[in-house]
């Protein structure tokens, strides 16, 4: 090969590598824009609100005096609503995903269900609020309670749980399914003994990602009639005497973090805006913690599994 020819090859490679580099730089810039926006928002809120975050802030009820107001009712409400949401949405969503992925025949009905589930994920949350108001509050008489709120948010994140679970199930290699079948396993044994344990980490991650969407929802909770000013806690789920556990809290009126924030933001007194920023910081902290747990659990369950 002559040297001229080699020169030409190098020029050609250079040209193509340059295009490659341009895209890499462009991508990096776009990511920076996204990250900086997010960091900016969070930082502004933390700077505004950090002075109010103290143990008292977590243990005080709302008050007309901004420096005495706290988020006790809100964080307890949010936590309890999340428990109901998780208990309702995760088993339902996982079961639906297993059915759709492993049992349903591929036909028109399956396609219809598929399109419906995908579309449900895009329905505005306020519409879920209206549905819940009609169904849970007026039809089933569940009241403006923690139970209603939890079930509403469960409906809201059900599509997310279904879609992520289906993806987790699909990621299990087919040769493991065949290995189980070849040993005489029934479909359910194959799912219970293999598919579910191997995809457990991913399913959990999906569930927690869904819950971290639910934790910030405001519109549907307001629609079903959550209180904005509340100075008492729901019944404790734990009891001193037998049976040690109580479900009375399910019927209790409540408020949640985003509503508490909304309430403070809409007051004219600027002092309350600082409270709102502080509550926002706590809410973001809760979300980040849930995502952190999701990442850790995924690591924990996947580290022993490779194929």
């Amino acid at each position: 090969m002559s040297s001229l020819n080699l020169e030409e090859i190098r020029r050609n490679i250079n040209r193509r590598q340059q295009i490659n580099k341009i895209f890499a730089i462009l991508g990096l810039l776009v990511i920076f824009v996204a990250i900086l926006t997010l960091l900016g928002l969070i930082l502004e809120m933390v700077i505004d609100g950090h002075s109010r975050i103290s143990p008292d802030f977590f243990t005080s009820f709302p008050s007309r005096k901004p420096e005495k107001a706290g988020i006790l009712a809100a964080w307890v409400g949010t936590s309890l609503v999340m428990v109901v949401t998780a208990v309702a949405a995760v088993p339902l969503g996982v079961a639906a995903a297993i059915y759709l992925e492993e049992y349903a025949r591929k036909n028109l009905l399956a396609d219809l269900i598929e399109i419906n589930v995908t579309n449900l994920a895009g329905v505005p949350s306020i519409v879920y609020g209206l549905l819940a108001l009609g169904l849970f509050v007026y039809q089933f008489n569940l009241g403006e309670s923690i139970l209603t709120a939890g079930l509403t948010l469960a409906l809201l994140i059900l599509p997310v749980v279904i879609v992520t679970t289906r993806e987790a199930l699909r990621a299990i290699p087919n040769n493991l399914r065949e290995a189980a079948y070849a040993l005489g396993a029934s479909k359910w044994q194959m799912i219970w003994d293999h598919i579910l344990p191997y995809s457990f980490g991913s399913i959990l991650t999906g569930a927690i990602v869904g819950l971290s969407r639910a934790i910030g929802e405001t519109a549907p909770i307001i629609t079903i009639g959550a209180l904005t000013f509340i100075a008492f806690l729901p019944d404790s789920p734990l009891r001193e005497e037998f049976p040690y556990i109580s479900f009375a809290w399910l019927q209790a009126p409540f408020t949640v973090m985003p509503i508490q924030m909304f309430n403070w933001v809409s007051r004219p007194n600027a002092e309350f805006h600082i409270n709102a920023a502080a509550a926002g910081t706590v809410l973001i902290g809760m979300t980040l913690m849930m995502n952190g747990i999701a990442i850790y659990l995924r690591y924990l369950f996947r580290k022993d599994i490779k194929w």
Binding site: P173, N175, L176, E178, A179, A180, A182, L183, G184, A185, S186, Q189, D193, H194, Y198, D304, I305, K306, W307
Partner: peptide, 22 residues
């Protein structure tokens, strides 16, 4: 099978699985 496809479980549980399903 063509490609070795043990379950991501212990050696013991892999072998025992055929009996466990029964």
């Amino acid at each position: 099978f063509q490609k070795p496809n043990p379950f991501p479980k212990s050696i013991y549980e892999n072998v025992a699985y055929g009996l466990r399903v029964r």
